[in-house]
Nucleic acid binder design. Structure first.
Length: 118
DNA sequence: CTTCTGACA
DNA sequence: TGTCAGGA
């Protein structure tokens, strides 16, 4: 996580900007934070600071809402999305681990009982 | 002036 | 969800 990545997660936008960019009221934005849909940072004065990722998510939430989904349903959508991403991640790690274990200096010697004949 | 939390006449 | 209070 560096370079391009940190820029999307770097929180710098104040409430007022996010309100204009998303057309949501401060009340709604704070509520979505309570629902764990976004996780803005805070500055020295306890004022929220939003990242581009936060804004993207809010715009996405607006789309779901416009499509008729309830906030509870949107919350579930992200929960499922995260779970799917996790199992996918675990799968990738297992494959990588097996790859490392079965090649190079960590290669496991296939133990044959008959190394003589043949 | 902007944003924050808590509360609901 | 809106809105008002009282503070930072």
């Amino acid at each position: 996580m560096a370079g391009r990545e940190i820029r999307r997660t770097f929180a710098v936008f104040p409430m007022g900007s996010v309100m204009k960019l998303t057309n949501f009221s401060a009340r709604q934005i704070r509520y979505y934070e309570e629902q764990q849909l976004i996780t803005p940072d805070r500055n020295e004065g306890n004022h929220r600071l939003f990242s581009l990722d936060d804004i993207d998510r809010l715009l996405e939430i607006r789309d779901y809402l416009d499509e008729g989904y309830s906030i509870a349903e949107v919350r579930d959508i992200y929960k499922r999305r995260k779970d799917a991403h996790r199992t996918e991640d675990a799968k990738a790690r297992r494959l990588l681990r097996d790859e490392i274990l079965n090649s190079g200096p960590f290669r496991q010697q296939p133990h044959k009982s008959n190394t003589f004949n043949k």
